[in-house]
């Protein structure tokens, strides 16, 4: 498998719903075997973008080329390559778990002789072997999500697209889904839409930040975090009476300081190294209420970028 081969190429993708522009000239490339995270606020266009990749929606303009096929000309071929897990695990309620998987296996054209084995394998993978004969309407949201994962993988797709797979799940179930994603990482090309920054940070090879239908930034989590100017963030909570502008000027004079922000009564100081922390703290003198340091996270990047 050539990991540099572009598996998914999004070109100038534009889509409007009425007067609302959901996607605005979106361009993105995803390599074979890569796990790309898409993060963004509500209404950023994440779901619209992945629905187009799954040929569920049609763009007003632009194209998505998947493994050499265009969504305009070869939607059936593209659909057969993709395993899609939608945000809501809506399934046919009256089916039993194994029958639901069989139904979708047949629709995806899985050879009859392979269906039973594939169903057993997937039920094992999502930890639902015991519930194979139970109806969907008896399942909790977590179980539905797990069976949805099995459904999305029934035809052993090359590409897996997951839209908020852990949203609303209890920590244990969410963790089991993340474990499954880790298992698939490198073997399949995956797109993961999520609101959970830690999830994107820990799972994804690269992360794209989407806002108002446009890609704001894209890169590895480390690269994105480095863009907030440092390895460490110093958080200093101070008295309300201080002269903010004056303090900000003084802080910026330190060579290790990359950026300074003041959010909710706190200075957020991005530092390239830790050597000058004590000098900066001295600057505040008796005005400090609390002080601590932290590593920059994707959440910091996200807030910084989307703000």
């Amino acid at each position: 498998m050539d990991s540099n081969e572009v598996m998914i190429k999004i070109e100038s993708l534009t889509k409007s719903f009425g007067r609302i522009k959901a996607l605005d000239n979106l361009n993105l490339e995803i390599k074979r075997g890569e796990l790309l995270g898409i993060i963004g606020p509500n209404g950023a266009g994440k779901t619209t973008a992945i629905r187009m990749a799954c040929c569920i929606l049609k763009p007003d303009f632009g194209d998505i080329i998947i493994n050499g096929y265009s969504i305009h000309y070869d939607p059936i071929k593209i659909k057969s390559m993709i395993g899609y897990l939608p945000e809501e695990p809506n399934l046919y309620e009256r089916f039993k778990a194994k029958d639901l998987l069989k139904y979708f296996a047949e629709l995806y054209g899985v050879p009859n002789k392979d269906i039973d084995g594939r169903i057993d394998e997937l039920l094992e993978l999502v930890g639902m072997t015991e519930r194979r004969d139970d109806r969907i309407n008896t399942f909790s949201k977590g179980l539905r999500q797990r069976i949805s994962v099995a459904r999305a993988l029934i035809h052993d797709p090359d590409i897996i697209i997951l839209d908020e797979p852990t949203m609303g799940l209890d920590p244990a179930t969410a963790n089991s889904i993340r474990t499954f994603i880790m298992k698939m990482k490198g073997k399949k090309t995956m797109i993961l839409c999520t609101h959970y920054m830690e999830e994107a940070d820990s799972l994804c090879d690269r992360v794209a930040i989407l806002n108002k239908g446009r890609i704001i930034d894209v890169g590895t989590p480390r690269y994105l975090k480095s863009k907030i100017h440092g390895d460490v963030i110093l958080k200093v909570k101070i008295q309300k009476s201080v002269d903010l502008v004056n303090f900000q000027k003084k802080i910026m004079q330190f060579s290790s300081v990359g950026a300074v922000d003041f959010v909710d009564g706190e200075f957020l100081i991005s530092l390239k190294h830790r050597n000058e922390i004590s000098d900066i703290v001295d600057l505040f003198n008796n005005e400090i209420i609390s002080i601590n340091t932290k590593e920059p996270t994707l959440e910091d990047v996200f807030i910084n970028t989307v703000r």
Binding site: C54, K77, K79, L91, R151
Partner: peptide, 10 residues
């Protein structure tokens, strides 16, 4: 369920 139905190779 229309979403997963349309996502089928049909």
């Amino acid at each position: 369920t229309a979403e997963i139905l349309i996502a089928m190779p049909l």
